[in-house]
Amino acid sequence: MPYVVTENCIRCQYMDCVSVCPVDCFREGEAMLVIHPDECIDCGVCEPACPAEAIRPDDDKEGTRWLAFNARFAEEWPRITEKGRPPDDADDWRGRPGKSAMVFGAAGP
């Protein structure tokens, strides 16, 4: 049961999760992070570390919806191993619904 990054990460990218991941399974895109599901060891330390509450287990309703998205983009986006700086407007995007359609359109889950 890997963990996955969901819509709440879009345009927030706080990256606290990256600094606690023991296996460096995060990838960074322009608007969000994803977790490589084949590399995640299901330890769960990233979930409580995320201030945007964007990380979910793949077997919960939201996690299931985002699993294929994470798998797809984990193959394309570069690995991130250190916490970076979130976007300047991250707090403005935090908790905003419908972000995936605004940012990814049809490419979202």
Rank of each mutant, 00 (worst) to 15 (best):
V4H: 00
E7T: 04
E7P: 01
N8K: 13
N8C: 10
I10Y: 00
R11I: 00
C12D: 10
Q13G: 11
Q13I: 09
M15C: 06
D16T: 12
D16Y: 12
C17D: 11
S19G: 14
C21T: 10
V23Y: 09
V23P: 03
D24K: 15
C25H: 12
C25W: 07
C25P: 12
F26H: 10
F26M: 08
F26Y: 12
E30H: 11
E30S: 11
A31Q: 13
M32S: 13
I35H: 02
P37N: 14
D38T: 09
E39D: 15
C40V: 05
I41M: 14
C43V: 08
G44I: 02
G44S: 11
V45K: 14
V45C: 15
V45Y: 13
P48S: 05
A49V: 03
P51I: 08
A54C: 13
R56W: 09
R56T: 04
P57S: 11
D60G: 10
D60L: 09
D60N: 15
K61E: 15
K61P: 08
K61F: 13
E62S: 13
R65M: 10
L67M: 14
A68W: 07
A68Q: 13
F69W: 10
F69C: 04
N70H: 04
R72A: 12
A74S: 15
E76M: 15
P78T: 09
I80E: 00
I80M: 02
K83D: 05
K83C: 01
G84Y: 13
D88H: 11
D88G: 15
D88Y: 09
D91Q: 13
D91P: 05
R94M: 14
G95F: 05
G95I: 08
G98Y: 06
G98E: 06
S100H: 11
V103K: 02
V103R: 04
F104P: 06
G105H: 06
G105C: 08
G105K: 12
A107G: 05
A107S: 13
G108L: 00
P109F: 07
